[in-house]
Design a binder for these strands. Structure first.
Lengths: 209, 209, 209, 209
DNA sequence: CGATAAACGAGACGGTACGTCGCGTCTTCTG
DNA sequence: CAGAAGACGCGACGTACCGTCTCGTTTATCG
C-alpha cells in the first residue's frame, strides 16, 4: 500500500529531535528536584539551554511535557527478549519486582500523580499515559502468563487482561490512593495472595526470596 | 466513636456549620468538574456565593480546603447495621455493587481523580482521602469477610487488608488509569476472578445475578 | 436630567488611586532612564512595588500607560489664572516659551513619538493624547489670542483654532519629523515669522529677549 | 603574508536585486497598515514571499530595513520641470494641493505615522525620512517661493526654510496629532491664513478655486 | 560540462517582553 | 458588624517577535 498523501513536503529547518531528549531529561531533573508544582517551564528551558518557544513547539502544555518526559524514561523499556525465565510463573513475577526498574517505579508514580487529574478529563492523555506507563509492564506480564499457559501451569481460560491489571492496580492504589510506600515485600505479597490465586494457582508456600 | 476534644463548651448542639457545608459542597462540585489543578478558589467562592476571605478564614490554603471537603463528604456513610446478608461471601459482595451507593462511586472517583495529584504530595491528605473515600467501603468489606470467616467459608488466615483493597484498587485503576467506564459487570467479574480466588474460594461457576 | 443607570453599585475594595500617581511616577522614571523601547512593564511594576496585574487593571497596554504618565505630568498644568500678561500678544507668547515647562516639551514629544503610530489607528487614543498633551497649551494660547482680540491688537475675525495650532505644529514637526532640536530661538522665530503674521500683525522688529 | 581583504570572489548564485524593491514595497505597505511597532519582519517576508534570511542578508535590522524602504520611496519625485506656473504664489501653492500627488499625501502620512516613533530614536532615520518624504515637496515649495521673490511678490528677506515647513507641519499635525482628515479645503485655508501672511502677503480675498 | 559556492523560501532556534490568571492577603462597603 | 466583593503583590503561564541558524533546493560561475 502506498501513501496517497505525501507527508507535507517538509520545508524549512528540521526540528532538531536530539533536543527532545535533552529537554525531557532536563524536565525529569527539575521534576525530581522541585516536584511537579515547583517545576517551571522556564526552569526546564534554562536547564536545557532552550527557549520556551522551543518547548511549546513540541509540547502544548506543562502536563503534556511531563507526561512525555515520563513516557520516554529509559527505564520504561523492558527488553522483552531478555526477560528472566525461572520456569515458574511465581518465579518470573517475583524476578520482575527485583529488577532495578522497579526501584524508580515510585518515582514514576510520583510524577504520574501530577497528571492523573488530567487523565480523567482527557481520553487522549489517558491513552498516552496508559501506553507509556502501563502497557510496557503489562506486556511483560502477558509474556509471563502466556508462558505459564504454555507449560500448563495455569489454565488457558484465564482472563489475561484482568490478570495483567492486578499488579499495577494494587501498586498504583497503594501509592496514589493510600499514599503508602510500595516496597518489594508488598509486591510479593500481592503476587502470592492475589495474582497467583486469580490465575488459579493455590499458594503453596510463600518462600523467602 | 466519640470526640476526645470538644470544641469550646458547645454541648448538646453542633455549631451551625451551614456555611461551611455549602462551601465544602461547592468545593467537591468544582473538584469533580475541573480537578484539583483546574479548580480555583474564586470558582469555589463564586459557586458558594461566598467571599474568598470567608474561605481563607476557615481554611488556611487550597489544599486544606480540599482536604476538609473530602474528609467531610456525606455520602461516605454506609449503614453498617443494614447491610445485605445473603449467606455467602459472593452474594454479599455482589449485592453491594448493586446497591445505590455504588452509583455515586464514579462521582467519588471523579473527586478522587481531582485530588490524586495532591495525595502524592501530602500525607495528611492521603490519610484524609483514605478515611473519607476508602475506609467506609473497606469497613463494609471487612464485615463481609468476617462473616465469611465466621461461617468458615474462607480461612481465618486471610490477609483482610489486602482483600479489602482489591476491589477499590481494580475499580480505581480502571477508571483513573485506563479511563474506562467501570460498570457492574466489571465489578462482578473482579469479584469472581480476583477477590474470591484471593479469599481462597475456587470460583465454581459465576451464576447469573 | 437624572441618571437612569446608577453607577454599578461599587462593591469590594476600592482601587487605591494613590497608587496611580506612584505608578505613573515610576513610569516616568524608567522612561527617562531607559527610553520608551527599553522600558518594561515589569521594571515599572518593580519600581512602583506593584504587581503587573495592578498596572494592567488600570491601563490596558504599555502605550496607554506611557500616554497617561505623560498626560499627568505636573508640568502639563498651566495655571490659567497666573499666566504672564505682558500687554502684547508677542510678549505673552514669548513669555510662554521661556517658561520652565517648555523645557520638558521635547521629552514629552520623545515619549509621544512612541504612541503616534497608535494615534493614527486609535481614535480614542488620539483624543486622549490631544486632550493631555495638546489641549493644555492650546488653552493658554487661546487666552493670549482672546486678550489680543479684546485689546484690538488683532482682528476679531481670526481663525483661533488655526492660530493655536501653528505653534504646536511647527514644534512637533521639527522634533518628530525632522529630528531636530527645538530651542527657544526657534520658537521665537516661529512666533515672529509665522504666528504673528497669521494673526495679522506685521512683524515690526524682532527684539532680543 | 595574509590577505586582509578577500577579493570579491564572486562565486555562487548572485543576489537577486529585483527582490530588493519588492521587499521594500512590502515593507512600506505593512508599515502603512500596522505602524512601525505593529510591523513584524515575518509580515514583510510573507508579503514579499521571501524568507527572513533574505531580508537580513540585505538589511541588518528592522530599523535599517524601514530606513531604506522610506529612503527609496518612488512616489517622492515631482517633476520639477513641469510644475504649474500660475503667475502668483497663491495660485502655485493651491495648484499643488490639487495635484494628483497630493492624493497619496495621506498614504505617505500613514507611512510617516508608522515611523514617527522611530524617528525620535534614530537620527539617521530622521534624516532619511526628511530626505524622502519632506524634501521633495519642500523643493517644490522653494521653487514657488523663489519665483515669488523673483517677481517681487514677496520680499527677498523671507526665511525660506520656515516658510517651506509650514504646510507640511500643519498637514502632519492635523493628521497625526489631531487624527483629523486633511482635505484640500484645509490646505487652502492654511495657505491663505498662515503661509501667505508669513510670506508677507496680506490675504486679500480667498478666491474660489 | 560537471563541480562548487552562494542565495533562495521555509521555518526552528535561544532569548526576552508581553498580557493573563491564580494564590493568599487586605480593604471597603453593604445588608 | 459579618461577609461579599474585589483590589493588591507576587509569580508562572503561554504567545509573539527579534535576529540567527539550518535545511533542501535553485542558480550562476569556474575549472
Amino acid at each position: 500500500m502506498t501513501r496517497i498523501i505525501e507527508p507535507p513536503a517538509k520545508l524549512g529547518r528540521k526540528r532538531d529531535h536530539t533536543r527532545d531528549q535533552e529537554i525531557l531529561d532536563a524536565t525529569l531533573d527539575v521534576l525530581a528536584e522541585t516536584g511537579y508544582d515547583g517545576m517551571t517551564i522556564d526552569m526546564v528551558a534554562a536547564r536545557a539551554k532552550a527557549g520556551k518557544a522551543t518547548l511549546y513547539r513540541r509540547w502544548s502544555s506543562k502536563p503534556e511535557l511531563v507526561l512525555d518526559a515520563v513516557a520516554c524514561m529509559k527505564s520504561n523499556d523492558f527488553d522483552l527478549t531478555a526477560l528472566p525465565d525461572t520456569g515458574t510463573l511465581r518465579g518470573d513475577l517475583v524476578a520482575m519486582v527485583k529488577a532495578p526498574s522497579i526501584r524508580d517505579g515510585e518515582h514514576k508514580l510520583q510524577i504520574m500523580a501530577g497528571i492523573v487529574s488530567m487523565i480523567a478529563r482527557s481520553p487522549e492523555l489517558a491513552a498516552a499515559a496508559h501506553e507509556a506507563l502501563v502497557e510496557p509492564r503489562a506486556s511483560v506480564n502477558r509474556i509471563f502468563f502466556q508462558r505459564a499457559i504454555d507449560r500448563h501451569e495455569i489454565p488457558a481460560t484465564v482472563d489475561l487482561e484482568t490478570l495483567c491489571a492486578i499488579g499495577p492496580a494494587m501498586f498504583a492504589y497503594r501509592v496514589l490512593m493510600l499514599g503508602k510506600h510500595a516496597d518489594r515485600e508488598f509486591m510479593v505479597r500481592t503476587i502470592d495472595q492475589v495474582i497467583l490465586p486469580a490465575a488459579g494457582i493455590t499458594p503453596a508456600i510463600a518462600l523467602a526470596d
